[in-house]
Write a protein that binds this DNA or RNA. Sequence first.
RNA 1: GCUGGCGUGGCUCAACGGUAGAGCAGCUGAUUUGUAAUCAGCAGGUUGGGAGUUCGAUUCUCUUCGCCAGCUCCA
Length: 587
Amino acid sequence: MKTQEELKDLQNLRHSASHLLAHAVKRLFPEAKLGIGPAIENGFYYDFDYEKGFTEADLTNIEKEMEKIKSERFDITRFELPRDEAIKLMSERNEPYKVQLINELPEDAAISFYQQGEFIDLCAGPHVESVRKIKAFKLLSLTGAYWKGSEKNKMLQRIYGTAFFSGNELAEHLKMLEEAKLRDHNKLGRELEFFTTVDVIGQGLPLIMPKGAKIIQLLQRFVEDEEEKRGYLMTKTPLMAKKELYEISGHWQHYKEGMFVLGDEEKDGEVLALRPMTCPFQYFIYKSKLRSYRDLPLRYGETSTLFRNEASGEMHGLIRVRQFTISEGHLICRPDQLSDEFKGVIDLVQFMMRTLGIEEDVTYRFSKWDPANKDKYIGSEESWESSQSQMRQILDELKLPYHEVEGEAAFYGPKLDVQMKNVFGKEDTMITVQIDLALAENFDMSYVDSDGQKKRPYIIHRTSLGCYERTLAMLIEKYNGAFPLWLSPVQVKLMTVTEKFNDYALSVKKEMEDAGLRVSLDDRNEKIGYKIREARNERIPYLCVIGEKEVEQESVQVRSRKEGELGMMAVKKLVAKLVVENAAKSL
RNA sequence: GCUGGCGUGGCUCAACGGUAGAGCAGCUGAUUUGUAAUCAGCAGGUUGGGAGUUCGAUUCUCUUCGCCAGCUCCA
């Protein structure tokens, strides 16, 4: 573990490495214009405006030039300029992006530059004191990135790299990246036959194969049973609706780009859209009759398939898809019940994560609206302030270690997002809990309160386990494909050494299956060593090779990836052990 | 959608303007075998799809579909 101080040093090193990169690029491609070049979590990048675009080969040359500059042993020095001189300097050097940045700096800001040899960059610093300090670096990839992160702006060329204080650390890091590739659910999940994709079916439409489907089925049953225990009522609602429904919910105005629309608004009397969420459908179940304050809270759950027309570049394995199934639900409650209901949801969510063994792998994000961007949202400023402050209070009472982010809210309300990183460090939302004070209004939902007055309920949108596809992806990476016993699509694999044990193996299989285990049998008694290896690659928890040694009681040898060699063990003992373990895990 | 990279049998890879090749997996037969590599044989590809350049395209060009990295967007 690195100390704060060491991390800071590493950041400075990487920031300096980005300047070294820019220095080399300016030497080799003087017409390239500088964007920005910060240190990031595991390295650094620098953005350039370069019309011709860099190639992979350029990267190698740039790297060589960086080494060369390093050998020129420049000190890295800082100086400040008044605004007009700063602009003059950057204009002379033909750096329009830097001029823009200077112009956007606040009046009283110090305008600082860092220089190494002939290279000067507008930069707040700090940096290491000399290019010689940048011991080990490597350029990793070449991509596009919009100037200032807005798709309205020009796309620049971004070069990613990483840097360390020693070659060993760099080598270790690169090795880690290689290993991460092997855990990547998008590779491993296909190898393990959890899912596949087909050109003619389309992007973001994975086929979940039997083993993947088995895991999802287990998760789904687990979720539905648990929710039922906690007072949820299950619904089953349509996968599509008329556009008028989405006009009420606001999706038509705020989310139309993300929906699959069936029919032509110009020509057709009736236009439908596949649903991107479940909310309004469950709201109409609520609205099907007059509700009393005594009826609340109502907790609706649905294993809900949703469709979102993601932009073509967004799809990724099972993490980002166009059709997915989510453990969706809405809690409709009185204002005085909001806190308890919210806490109940968090308890459920944490129970789920504990059961999956991922509670240590997530972070909590309190996602707020962006007051500077009001037309992205519905509802009044007061209602946003109210829902956000109520959520914050609940989160504080729960002592959840959350961080706040502006501009990540849903268009109808603030969210608590449970974030998990994939194997490459990219973060995605697994679970989300949202407070919504807006849609009850839009849908004219009400209940009759104890004073006889009609009032608006509060709504909590939530998922308990997120969407099954993404959760499966995260679990594949978390467990490197070796799922906990209760989730393993195949728990035990039996294989026989010779044909004469096949009948016996069948009876063993039956006995295990009767005990509730998922068993597969390979009775093609050949290449037994290979078969064992293969079964291990499939991450099957228990392998039983059934062979002779006459003694029936000891004819089964058991191996577990997790526990290593278990030694010789009788079939019945094995079954008993597995059954106990199985029951314990699934409770 | 944007930028860059990539698509050769189930998998891993080769050939890179001149008749598509190997290993593993698969199938058939022999072998009856205890922790990957028993032997022999067979089969499997209009090199993602389409168009163009060429005497000739897996190789060059364009286009389309898909995959990957990132940007933007998001569960």
